[in-house]
Design a binder for these strands. Structure first.
Length: 524
RNA sequence: GGCGCAUUCGUCUAGGGGCCUAGGACGCCGCCCUCUCACGGCGGUAACACGGGUUCGAAUCCCGUAUGCGCUACCA
């Protein structure tokens, strides 16, 4: 694990913030940033702040804020200051902090670190286009930098609109990044950038710095797409005479096509993943360990375990690609590490959420159609169109009875439906399944013999059922495989099910016998 | 174009000059176990972007090149 220099500041002084902009749901990349901030804060006994960066009014929505807050809560990332948790440095929404930005901008202007610029957007656009046509780079020429006080006064009095730009000093700006060490930029590549728009509002770079300074942030943990902005921010810190925080720019999360994660990559938000049957606990650990060395023991870690053991400062620096396959595997490992009782409860909870109990047939008529139906159900549940449907007593009990039978067969909670959904529905055959049953040697005899045998069985328990079934092949002079296949198909209409003896037992004597007889009837 | 960050198996990574004929995990393939599907066990496939240096010796250090990404907005 690497840590580039510098001892950690006093623990309790540590203050970090997670500052998403509410332009949509919280995608996994942001969730990861929030996670790291949380872990880092808790690890040092510091303070974790949630701040909403909604400076861009046109793209920010209250709905998005609600979603972000929900996702954070679902992951267990509780903040010490932020929306709903008043603190000494609020408000925690940028749109409510305009006065503060105005105040700081005024101070910087007075101290000469800012100057008014009367160039219009159109003029600048022409310059930029020309520079680009000439194949060169473009930074603001500094045309208004040397305007005399008189001229500024005159043009302002005449009502000419103006922006405020930073008088970027000559030289080089260097800052420390915990993951990469020193990172430096020549100031002349920065240009005198705008910090106050002509309508008087603050731009991002000013707002973040003012927020971080006033909120006394000591460590800025964010995506490495902010590295290029950092020197500009450092210049503002310096102009303000404020202490520059420590930075940790974490690698970005990409989709399988090496592009920034987006909707094209399938599930990219937490709610979608949990709707598909992934566990938040697992998603959390996966996200955390994406840029770190994989360690099997962490699969079942809790959030507190992450706080205790995960080293945020030892992260890798190259972008990681989100791999749903590995997540799925991890989810399966996690499931298998838990008890049958735990699985039962989680299944009931999950199946309720996706509406399975209200319509077990709709959510999974066959394994193939089931996946599709499930996806649709999840989508509708997501959109809030389908209220969760609670199981009746029987369904609840059956789910819990089935939990041990399917335990080692599930990667996702959703896998329960194709595997065991048939227990909740009347026996039904897809055309291919019936064909397969017909093609199974000795199927009619097997079904009849098994039905009779099961009906007369003294004790309805798994060992006795197994003994009975295992004697069938010899009695009927059939291959064991054929007997098992006929019974599996006959009781379920499927060729993939949980263990045969356990399944017959879970069905109950009457139901099991009735199903086998019904199947036999179809073959007659 | 400029500036910055990054670059080890398909993917996540170990590796900070000799321990590396590059280790682990997912995936994939094969075998074993087995009533289906799985689980589990065993084995296999597969990588240091390229080119120059420095050094007795480089995946590891330096310089180029290439590629990807980011910033270069009165977006955040």
């Amino acid at each position: 694990m690497r840590y580039h220099g510098r001892p950690m500041p006093q623990d309790s002084h540590i203050r970090v913030r997670f500052a998403p902009s509410p332009t949509g749901y919280l995608h996994l990349g942001s969730a990861r940033t929030g996670l790291y901030n949380y872990i880092f804060a808790r690890q040092h006994g510091g303070t974790f702040i949630l701040r909403i960066e909604d400076t861009d009014l046109s793209r920010s929505t209250d709905e998005a804020i609600v979603q972000i807050v929900e996702s954070m809560k679902e992951m267990g990332l509780h903040w010490d200051e932020g929306p709903g948790v008043p603190g000494p440095h609020g408000p925690y929404r940028q749109t409510e902090r305009h006065e503060i930005y105005r105040d700081y901008a005024g101070r910087l202007l007075e101290a000469g670190h800012l100057y008014p610029c009367f160039c219009t957007a159109e003029e600048l656009e022409v310059e930029r286009a020309a520079a680009q046509a000439a194949g060169g780079g473009w930074v603001y020429s500094g045309r208004c930098r040397g305007l005399s006080a008189d001229e500024v006064r005159r043009r302002q009095a005449a009502g000419e609109p103006f922006t405020l730009r930073v008088r970027v000093p000559e030289g080089r700006t260097v800052f420390h990044d915990i993951l990469r060490g020193e990172v430096g930029f020549d100031n002349d590549t920065l240009g005198d950038f705008i910090v106050v728009r002509s309508d008087g509002s603050a731009t991002y770079n000013l707002a973040v710095v003012v927020d971080d300074v006033t909120m006394e942030i000591t460590h800025v943990i964010r995506g490495d797409d902010h590295i290029s902005n950092t020197p500009k921010q450092v210049v503002i810190y310096q102009a303000l005479g404020a202490a520059v925080p420590e930075f940790l720019h974490m690698p970005l999360l990409f989709g399988t096509d090496r592009k920034k994660l987006s909707k094209r990559h399938g599930a990219t938000k937490l709610e979608q993943l949990t709707a598909e049957g992934f566990l938040v606990e697992v998603v959390r650990n996966y996200l955390c360990f994406l840029s770190a060395e994989f360690d099997e023991t962490m699969i079942t870690w809790s959030l507190d375990d992450l706080v205790r053991h995960f080293d945020v400062t030892g992260l890798g620096t190259s972008p990681s690609i989100f791999d749903p396959e590995k997540l799925r595997w991890m989810n399966g490992r996690y499931l298998r590490a838990m008890t049958d009782e735990w699985l039962g409860s989680r299944l009931v909870e999950y199946l309720t959420r996706v509406g399975f109990y209200g319509d077990p047939a709709g959510v999974g008529e066959s394994a193939a159609r089931g996946a599709e139906a499930l996806a649709r159900a999840v989508e509708e549940a997501e959109a809030g169109r389908v209220p969760p449907v609670c199981p009746n007593e029987e369904q609840d009990a059956l789910t819990r009875t089935l939990a041990p039978l399917v335990h080692e067969k599930l990667d996702l909670l959703a896998d329960f439906v194709p595997m065991a959904g048939w227990f909740f529905r009347p026996l039904e055959f897809a055309p291919e399944a019936l064909e397969r049953l017909r093609g199974t040697a000795g199927a009619p005899e097997t079904l009849a013999a098994a039905a009779a045998g099961l009906r007369g069985l003294e004790h309805w328990d798994i060992p006795d059922i197994e003994t009975l079934v295992r004697e069938l092949p010899q009695a009927l002079t059939l291959k064991p495989k054929a007997v098992f296949a006929a019974l599996r198909l006959g009781m379920s209409g499927q060729s993939v099910t949980p263990g045969l003896f356990e399944s017959l037992w879970a069905l109950g004597r009457d139901n099991a016998v009735a199903r086998l007889e019904q199947a036999a009837g179809l073959l007659a």
